[in-house]
């Protein structure tokens, strides 16, 4: 999943970005409100983390503009303002969640996951395709009875494909959601990653292919045909 973090305090932004990346998310970051709005408008993010007091354009204004543009990306306000009025104002503008500084990083990641699931209308952290099971909270992948060890990036890619199980996912979608701005769009990093993922989810007991290539379209994850 791809996250946008708009927070002007560099000292806080840096560790949050680190934590999100370590959890397998692609993260774009900025400390300026106007740039944040531009990024949110230009890219398709799964979750946006917004500070309220921002230079250029404040968090409320960014959210208001995004909703006016028809952008329904889940937004989590990350702010020092903790009064009921502030929370209500944020939620009324269309924010999906509100987290007051200081927070436990685990809580922030859990909320980001929940918002990401909500985006794909999944109420449970456990995703299943055939005998492949992914728990996005526990960060576990099990095939049959075997627990698989995946890198953070492969886990994110698998999660993204499983969230959209049965649908064709284009390379552009994967690039947009899994890789941040620093990824080179011209490289074959996606094909390489998908290939690596196919290998990673194979076990001696269960090696039926789950990720299928749709030529010219993209990839689809679905149960193997009988």
């Amino acid at each position: 999943m791809r996250i946008l973090l708009v927070e002007d305090a560099v000292s806080l932004r840096k560790p949050v970005v680190k934590a999100l990346k370590a959890s397998g998310y692609a993260v774009d970051e900025t400390g300026d409100g106007e740039e944040g709005y531009w990024l949110a408008s230009e890219h398709e993010y799964d979750v946006i983390l917004l500070d309220i007091m921002l230079p250029g354009m404040d968090g409320h204004e960014i959210l208001k503009k995004l909703r006016a543009d028809g952008d329904e990306t889940p937004v989590l306000f990350l702010t020092a303002k903790d009064t009921i009025e502030d929370r209500v104002a944020g939620l009324r503008l269309g924010a999906d969640d509100y987290l007051v500084k200081s927070f436990a990083i685990e809580e922030l990641i859990a909320r980001v996951e929940a918002l990401g699931r909500r985006r794909y209308q999944k109420s449970t952290p456990v995703l299943k395709v055939g005998d492949l099971e992914l728990n996005s909270s526990a960060k576990k992948v099990i095939r049959g009875k075997t627990e698989l060890k995946l890198s953070a990036q492969l886990f994110t890619l698998l999660e993204f494909l499983m969230l959209r199980a049965g649908e064709v996912v284009t390379r552009a979608d994967i690039e947009e959601h899994i890789y941040d701005e620093q990824a080179d769009p011209m490289s074959n990093v996606i094909d390489t990653a998908v290939c690596a993922l196919r290998r990673a989810i194979k076990t001696p007991e269960s090696d039926a292919p789950l990720i299928h290539t749709r030529r010219g379209q993209g990839y689809i994850i679905s149960e193997p045909a009988e």
Binding site: A9, S11, L12, P15, V16, A19, A80, V100, K101, S102, F103, A104, I105
Partner: peptide, 9 residues
């Protein structure tokens, strides 16, 4: 809160 959150995070 902001520096505290930064320290904690």
């Amino acid at each position: 809160r902001t520096p505290l959150a930064a320290i904690r995070t």
